[in-house]
Design a binder for these strands. Structure first.
Lengths: 224, 224
DNA sequence: CTTCCACAACTAAAATTCTCATCTTAGGGA
DNA sequence: TCCCTAAGATGAGAATTTTAGTTGTGGAAG
């Protein structure tokens, strides 16, 4: 899940970034309106968090132009408590939800989850492949009832694979969703992390849930 | 030293990024013209590497507008072999040097060094503080003739300190030049890396070359 | 059909980067 | 002077990434 945060105050931006990254989202931060608009159009984000008070170009304008340009990504806007009519304008301009500053970070995370869930059309949010069950809300993963522990990157990769079970994911697709955007092609971190996942998930089983598709990428088996 | 690379082909971009990072520059990559222009104006880069063949806005236009907006940063343009008149236009628009694709990466690094040296007005490039000698070209550091080894980040931090010996560098200045732009304020990596440097440089000496300026930041002693 | 080669993928181990928790120090009140 | 707080230092170790050597695969050549 890739999220764009358009926010000019560095403190707030890095606070949000950190919180979202802890939840295993891939986060890009942009500090001004025009830049935000560019990124929103250039990359197919899963969610955009947009401050309405921006230098260069007001947030509402960014949103309007992005929508005009055909960007369908759900947008969560941030406003100061006083900017009530801004908020209304924001929702009119095509925002999907809003949050007033200052806000509890947990609130932001909850709304993020909600928006992503709504966009994905998933009713429960629980992912299951074979006897592996992943709960995106609590970030808990079990296999056959046994709890499994993952690091942030491992979890992000696993969730992406499970969300796309039965589909082949190329290395660049994985890169785009789980690692940084300007990613180095000449590394094999993905292979390494696949190996970590297999170690934890398939330990002791003969057939891995994660299949290698030679020359293309990897695929999570959609069913036994 | 912070460098902006504006280049749309991901392979080329990450190739350049990697090469520059290996030389301890802090590198930002931007994939289109408008974005490049924004970043060039928003951040005080030490060098901009600009592809002339860009989506959104031609490189020459980016350059013209940046210059019009008062951006003084040296610019190195990249062109395909066939785009001879583009190159001329680029130099007319205010570029400081050019390189034709395909190019040897060493060539790019050499020109980068040359441009940065020219801009900094440093004649030899060798930095010396007390008996610590740093050669930015070979990335070799010695103290009293003894060779010292550093990791990429350690080296970048040390070079920045030495280039500004006698001046107090705040944590945000260090952040801007050595770490990523959207840096987390709540971390103490800088302190940790200062500690690493002291361990390697001052091992066994009573007085550290790197002074702590309480409440402000750090400073490399300019002289004994 | 078999063998060989080149490339893709795998993995262990090392290196690097970053975080966290704890300890130390400096400086300003009470 | 003593104590308290904020700032800084640092060891331990977790997470991430790189490196390099090994293994596996499929196609080409014989």
């Amino acid at each position: 899940m890739r999220i764009l945060v358009v926010e000019d105050e560095p403190k707030v931006a890095s606070f949000i970034r950190r919180a979202l990254e802890e939840e295993s989202y891939a986060v890009d931060v942009c500090v001004d309106g025009p830049g935000g608009l560019d990124w929103a159009q250039a990359v197919n984000y899963d969610l955009i968090v947009l401050d309405l008070m921006l230098p260069g170009l007001p947030g509402v304008e960014v949103l309007k132009r992005a929508r005009a340009a055909g960007v369908k990504t759900p947008v969560l806007i941030l406003t100061a408590r006083s900017e009530v009519d801004q908020r209304v304008k924001g929702l009119d301009a095509g925002a999907d939800d809003y949050l007033t500053k200052p806000f509890a970070i947990e609130e932001l995370l909850a709304r993020t989850r909600a928006l992503l869930r709504r966009a994905g059309g998933a009713p429960t949010g629980i992912l299951q492949v074979d006897d592996v069950v992943l709960n995106p809300v609590t970030r808990e993963v079990t296999r056959g009832g046994q709890r499994l522990e993952f690091t942030t990157k491992e979890y992000a990769l696993l969730e992406y694979l499970m969300r796309n079970a039965g589909r082949v994911l190329t290395r660049s697709m994985i890169t785009e969703h789980v690692w940084d955007l300007d990613f180095d092609t000449f590394t094999n971190v993905i292979d390494v992390y696949i190996s970590y996942l297999r170690n934890k998930i398939d330990k002791g089983r003969e057939r891995s849930l994660i299949q290698t598709v030679r020359g293309s990428g990897y695929m999570m088996r959609s069913d036994g």
